[in-house]
Design a protein around this nucleic acid. Structure first.
Lengths: 245, 245
DNA sequence: CGACATATTGATCGACTTCAAGTGTAGTGG
DNA sequence: CCACTACACTTGAAGTCGATCAATATGTCG
């Protein structure tokens, strides 16, 4: 269970990125997590069409929302890393419109819906911050739509890497411009909506231009400015500024 | 101003699609709309990077969220019709990460953020329903991502039409399998992330197979079953069932 | 009618997919 | 320590989908 030890509750860390929390609010969030579960890479964490009675918070690893089409094709619609909720929206949607799969081994904390519901009854400010986290989810969806629709494969790849870097940096999982991102090119292809071969070639392009290194799980951004330029990247949508919400 | 007359407040109609409202809640929603504004096709309703102090609710017409890339390409990331909020998320995001443009002439109701905020302080159930509406937005985003990434142009086109039909039906703007949808093929192209020419050809395919008719603003689905089949369409993500939230 | 936007069509081009090997690299068991 | 296996990554070739370019309708509105 190495790597799990954290000073603060991950939910506190997550929400306090966007606004300050009172001591009282922190106390409440401490009590909201039920138990912790582990998953192996490839496991399903949440099933499509299920009706969860708790939501899942990532403590470590990477997971992704996915859809499978009738012809067997898969599309990932979101990537989750430490601190992210994977299915907070199930509190309101009731029925999952997608599954969630573990891309790497990962640990998640279970947050029972009745406790979240109690927060919505009694803690308006915390409720708004939880709401905010689903709204940021949606902003990321929009950025993906733009990238899929109107960027080249290389631009889209670069955009994803910019996003992942900043999101990991926000939870202190980067080391300079390096970070662990142990997903396969096939999985990246399913995020981008492209073929594995093409993802491979986009990465080769970025490597050959000395913008990126990616050996095994370790990604290093060698030229952040050019990566951003290729991606036409604007980080606004990640809402990484703290302000009163 | 024809067509505006409605028995119920549009916000009541919107939220009561997903759960029942008390008389008290309906009364509160009646008082939440400030004024009504009109826009002409092509107008910007909300600007990217702005910090709105009110959110906009569609009363009539069609509008869309959009992003413009550095090279001038445009991608629409959401389509809004009667009853939809275009920027409810600005209540929490504070800064708009996209613009909203009027695709047709349209009327919108302004809902001041301070009144919405008051609801979040005092009305947990209404707050959850507002939250739900942003969460459905996100579910639609995911459906678009899947369609862009893993469906053919024809499948994607069919999927969009299935979605628009059901959403319009939910607000009683359909007439059997017909509805008004006066957007240009260029605008559809910007929703799908494809070229105008290709959208034209996808539509011709659907027409030639006698699945669809589309003359001027009027769309008629001639074969709903085959349209759904081509789209591989599952309406779950639209959350069109009423249940306790 | 003229002006302008939108829709349609054809031809060409290129990005990306698919298919099919081949090349690591890590893990397993003898 | 060395086969042997299993993935993942890489590469090349061929094919296709969809983009782009360029005309030509068609339609609408003043």
């Amino acid at each position: 269970m190495a790597g799990l030890v954290q000073t603060k509750n991950p939910l506190v860390l997550n929400l306090s990125r966007h606004d300050s929390l009172s001591a009282e609010e922190e106390r409440i969030l401490e009590g909201v997590v039920d138990r912790i579960d582990s998953f192996r890479a490839g496991d399903d964490i949440v099933l499509e069409d299920s009706r969860p009675s708790e939501s899942c918070l990532m403590l470590s690893g990477f997971s992704a929302r996915y859809h499978i089409l009738h012809d067997g094709k898969r599309q990932l619609t979101a990537l989750h890393l430490t601190g992210d909720f994977l299915d907070l929206h199930s509190l309101l949607l009731k029925v999952m419109d997608h599954g969630v799969t573990a891309l790497t081994d990962c640990q998640i904390a279970r947050v029972p819906h009745d406790r979240l519901r109690k927060i919505t009854e009694e803690q308006p400010h915390l409720t708004r911050l939880l709401w905010l986290s689903t709204v940021i989810d949606a902003a990321i969806h929009r950025a993906w739509i733009v990238a899929m629709g109107r960027r080249s494969a290389v631009g889209q790849m670069a955009h994803l890497l910019c996003e992942v870097f900043l999101r990991l940096e926000a939870v202190e999982l980067t080391d300079g411009y390096s970070f662990d991102f142990s997903v396969t090119q096939g999985e990246v292809a399913d995020m981008l909506g492209r073929s594995t071969v093409h993802v491979n070639r986009a990465l080769q392009f970025l490597r050959q231009k000395e913008i990126l290194r990616w050996r095994g799980p370790k990604v290093t951004i060698e030229d952040w400015d050019r990566l951003q330029a290729i991606a036409d990247f604007d980080p606004t949508y990640l809402s990484l500024r703290k302000e009163a919400r």
